[in-house]
Simulated scan of single mutants.
Amino acid sequence: MTILIVGATGTLGRQVARHAIDEGYKVRCLVRNSKKAAFLKEWGAELVWGDLCRKETLPFALEGVTAVVDSSTARPTDSLSVKQVDWEGKVALINAAKAAHVDHFIFLSILNADKYPEVPLMEIKHCTELFLAESSLNYTILRLAGFMQGLISQYGIPILEEQPVWVTGESSPIAYMNTQDIAKLVIRALSVEETKNKIFPIVGTYAWSAEEIIGVCKKLSGKEVKITRMPIGLLRAVRNSLRFFQWSWNVADRLAFAEVIANGKPLDASMEDVYKVFGLDAKETTTLEGYLQDYFNRIMKKLKELDYNKAKTGIRKPKKSPFKNVNN
């Protein structure tokens, strides 16, 4: 079976590619920059140049492909808008997959996307779900809540560097999940017939508020935490001001999404049926405490090594942060 992975250089996409290769699948990755994707080739994936927003590049990438895993999304710094990438690009991909007679299309969406029509990214994700479901392709839609990996830059690194941690509005509890666990579920869906033409929530073991996560980081790091709160009204004012400039529309759309995680409503769902259908053990899912403990243990070990080398050689402490390259 040949799998085409779209978004394979991203935080989740690379884990999907790694797990698929480890499971023996033939993996092809749609990439725009072969240099940035070189690590995928080293793992054993085939790289094919293409761009969602250049639909003429998609048919070649889909030749001989059995299944598509779409984990791509527009980045805040992209020159293209969320609409161009996450809607027009996805429509082109789904149509191309249909023309190529792809057997299975797995789309990674966002939990509760149908409940926020006023948020551009959420509305587009929901519309893409509907378009895929009506395409006649066999599909599996996995609705995600949040990645544990993102918590390192959001909380871990600022706390270790004794910088303020920003909290916006009323913190929404989020059931974060390790991308490695998500990747396992994604690849499992390829071999379980019961996952076809269905939608599943994919979330972690517990929905954590920002304050709870900060408390865990404080305990594990042994450092005091400076919390800076941004009122939700100020966030809206910034978002509205950015809408005046075309070059910042993508950032404004992302700020609109920030309101989803700052309104106090939890992003969580039951995974009981998911584990039954996928045939996986819930006890094997990474807990947030375990993930953060592993990160801080590795950081503290690295800091001790740096202090030892400094004392031994008399070399000054490096200016670059030692915290940024210790994450999975």
Rank of each mutant, 00 (worst) to 15 (best):
A67H: 02
M300S: 11
T195E: 08
V216Q: 07
Y275H: 10
K301A: 13
E224G: 13
G314E: 05
A20Y: 04
T57C: 02
R54Q: 14
L130V: 14
E129A: 12
D294G: 14
G204D: 04
V186M: 05
L234Q: 12
V277C: 13
S248F: 10
L151A: 03
V6Q: 01
P173W: 01
L130N: 09
Y25Q: 07
V82P: 02
S135V: 04
R229P: 09
S153L: 06
Y155E: 06
K115M: 02
A97S: 14
L235C: 06
L4S: 13
N327Q: 14
M230G: 04
S171R: 03
L160P: 03
R188E: 15
Y295A: 00
K55F: 10
A252C: 11
G169V: 00
M271R: 02
V6N: 08
S153W: 03
K223Y: 11
K35H: 00
A175E: 07
E170W: 01
S171L: 10
F60R: 14
P231R: 00
W247T: 15
T287N: 13
C217L: 06
T313I: 04
F131Y: 14
V216E: 13
I202V: 14
K219P: 00
L185I: 15
S270G: 11
K223E: 08
E42Q: 14
R239Y: 04
N327F: 10
F296K: 01
G7D: 01
S136C: 06
I157C: 01
L121H: 10
L47A: 06
Y291L: 05
V69I: 15
L58T: 09
E272T: 09
R18D: 07
E63Y: 05
N297G: 04
K302Q: 08
M1G: 15
K35L: 02
L62Q: 06
L267G: 13
F245P: 12
L80C: 07
Y206E: 11
Q293Y: 09
F245S: 14
F323Y: 15
K324P: 02
P158C: 10
P266V: 02
W247Y: 14
E46H: 06
Q15D: 11
E162F: 07
Q15W: 02
L280Q: 08
K55M: 11
Q154Y: 12
A61C: 12
K55W: 12
I21E: 01
E194K: 05
M230N: 11
D273Y: 09
R75K: 07
I202S: 04
M177C: 09
K276L: 10
T11V: 09
Q246S: 15
R229A: 13
A183D: 15
T195A: 14
A311K: 08
D114C: 07
S172H: 00
G314A: 01
A97M: 04
G24R: 03
K304P: 04
S79V: 11
M148N: 09
E193M: 06
N327G: 11
N240R: 00
